[in-house]
Amino acid sequence: MKTRLLLLLLVLLGPGAWAQQPAPAATPATSTSTNDAQQLEQEREKWNAVLTGKETRILFNARPNALLVEAIKGRPPGLALDVGMGQGRNTIYLAQQGWDAYGFDIADEAINLAQDNARKAGVKITTFTQSDEQFEFGTERWNLVAVLYAGGRELVPRIYRSLKPGGLVVIEAFHRDATRVRKISPSVVFDPDELRKLYEAAGFRILRYEEPEGIGDFGLQRMRLVKLVAQKP
Results as ranks from 00 to 15, higher is better:
Leu5Asp: 09
Leu6Lys: 10
Leu6Thr: 10
Leu8Ser: 06
Leu10Gln: 13
Leu13Thr: 09
Pro15Met: 06
Gly16Asp: 12
Trp18Val: 12
Trp18Ser: 03
Ala19Gln: 11
Gln21Pro: 00
Ala23Asp: 09
Ala23Arg: 10
Thr27Val: 15
Ala29Gln: 12
Thr32Asp: 08
Ser33Thr: 10
Asn35Thr: 13
Asn35Asp: 11
Leu40Gln: 09
Leu40Ser: 09
Gln42Ala: 13
Glu43His: 15
Arg44Met: 04
Glu45Tyr: 06
Glu45Gln: 15
Glu45Arg: 08
Lys46Phe: 11
Trp47Thr: 02
Val50Glu: 01
Thr52Arg: 05
Lys54Tyr: 12
Glu55Ile: 06
Arg57Tyr: 05
Arg57Pro: 01
Ala62Gln: 15
Pro64Asn: 02
Pro64His: 03
Leu67Cys: 07
Ala71Glu: 02
Ala71Val: 08
Leu79Pro: 03
Leu79Ser: 01
Ala80His: 02
Asp82Thr: 05
Val83Cys: 10
Met85His: 00
Gln87Asn: 15
Gly88Ile: 00
Gly88Pro: 00
Leu94Pro: 06
Ala95Asn: 00
Gln96Arg: 05
Gln96Leu: 01
Gln96Asp: 07
Gln97Tyr: 00
Asp105Arg: 12
Ile106Glu: 08
Ile106Gly: 02
Asp108Phe: 02
Asp108Met: 05
Ala110Lys: 03
Ala110Met: 02
Ala110Phe: 00
Leu113Tyr: 07
Ala118Val: 02
Ala118Phe: 00
Ala118His: 01
Lys120His: 08
Lys124His: 07
Ile125Ala: 04
Ile125Trp: 01
Thr129Ser: 08
Gln130Lys: 13
Glu136Gly: 15
Phe137Trp: 15
Glu140Lys: 10
Glu140Asn: 13
Tyr149Met: 07
Ala150Glu: 00
Ala150Cys: 14
Gly151Pro: 04
Gly152Val: 10
Arg153Gly: 08
Arg153Glu: 14
Leu155Arg: 03
Leu155Ala: 06
Leu155Met: 15
Arg158Trp: 15
Ile159Asp: 04
Ile159Glu: 04
Tyr160Ala: 09
Pro165Asp: 07
Leu168Gln: 01
Ile171Pro: 00
Glu172Gly: 04
Phe174Met: 13
Phe174Asp: 04
Arg176Met: 08
Arg176Val: 10
Asp177Thr: 12
Asp177Gln: 14
Thr179Gly: 04
Lys183Val: 07
Pro186Asn: 10
Pro186Arg: 07
Pro186Ile: 07
Val189Cys: 06
Leu195Ala: 07
Leu195Phe: 14
Arg196Pro: 02
Lys197Gln: 13
Tyr199Lys: 11
Ala202Glu: 11
Leu207Pro: 05
Tyr209Met: 12
Tyr209Arg: 13
Glu211Asn: 14
Glu211Tyr: 04
Gly214Trp: 08
Ile215Glu: 12
Gly219Asp: 06
Gly219Phe: 05
Gln221Arg: 13
Arg222Leu: 15
Arg222Lys: 15
Met223Cys: 05
Arg224Lys: 14
Leu225Gly: 12
Val229Asn: 05
Ala230Phe: 00
